[in-house]
Design a protein around this nucleic acid. Structure first.
Lengths: 154, 154
DNA sequence: TGGGAAATTATGGGCGTCAATGGATTCTCA
DNA sequence: TGAGAATCCATTGACGCCCATAATTTCCCA
């Protein structure tokens, strides 16, 4: 499988290590770098996660044409690269989340890995519950639109 | 890994030496020159950094076609080459930043190495914070949804 | 179909290695 | 020969690797 699906809640041990779910690891097994890339989500107290391919695409498009990218987009790329961390996992499949990243998501003892297709997120479990409750409410309200919407495939 | 990612804050000792982050060094391990290239950023109080390969690409594209690069861009390249410094690192991976470069970025005790993909920057830590806060605000204001956009990987 | 047996995964902890840093010593060239 | 620069050495603290254990899950076969 090449997609991140489902939710896994794993423990953060006293050394700060967390097991990356096995299915996530196998989804990334094709890439050369044995690990994940994480950066703080801009609009929520969560951590964005992905493979190295994402960053390479970002770098490629950024240098391909400066005209395609607005200063704002450039800001964004800058922020993402600057606040990203390449985390190699150990032989057991664990990574240590950097302090600043943990703080951003208020993670202390447990981390919830949430599959989002081609990317994933890491949440503090309780914060995730709250976030999902909101999302659920919004979804119910906007149901008519959701039903009509088509998945965008490229 | 061939990209400069993440941010590292290292100390400048009394002899002016700074450790180049290990991950940056390994990103440059393929090139023949054991060191980095730095030049003052044109629009901010920061230092631009890259490997020799990037400079060569810059030179190549500048002379390959004047249509791709405007006269202004050509001026830019001239400025960059003129004010560039090739800094070899010592056996421990440290470089000495030239006085004029340090002054331009107001660096005294600490230097923040900021990954930007194929290049990186060096900032005075506090100045970097301020700059990132601005960038973050601009990015959020203009198009938060850009964050969600992601090129597909195959 | 109902057990086990084996493989996989999550978790804990010990230990060696390496990166960052500071200082001393040697080298080089004017 | 002296000053600046480059190399060498020494410390410490973090990180990666190894092994051990436990809790699953998968698989095999009676």
């Amino acid at each position: 499988m090449a997609l991140f699906v489902s939710t896994f809640i794993n423990k953060v041990d006293r050394k700060g290590r967390v097991s990356v779910p096995a299915s996530f690891r196998s989804a990334l097994s094709a890439q050369p770098f044995a690990g994940i890339v994480v950066y703080p989500a801009l609009t929520s107290a969560a951590i964005e996660g992905c493979g190295t391919a994402f960053l390479e695409d970002l770098a490629a498009s950024a240098e391909a044409s400066f005209d395609l990218f607005s200063p704002e987009q450039d800001d964004l790329n800058t922020l993402i690269f600057a606040s990203s961390h390449q985390l190699a996992w150990d032989p057991e499949g664990r990574v240590v989340l950097p302090e600043e990243i943990l703080a951003h998501a208020h993670i202390t003892e447990q981390a919830a890995f949430v599959g989002k297709g081609r990317t994933f997120q890491i949440w503090e479990p309780d914060a995730l519950k709250a976030h999902q409750a909101e999302a659920r409410e919004r979804a119910l309200k906007n149901r008519p639109q959701l039903v009509l919407r088509r998945p965008e495939t490229k």
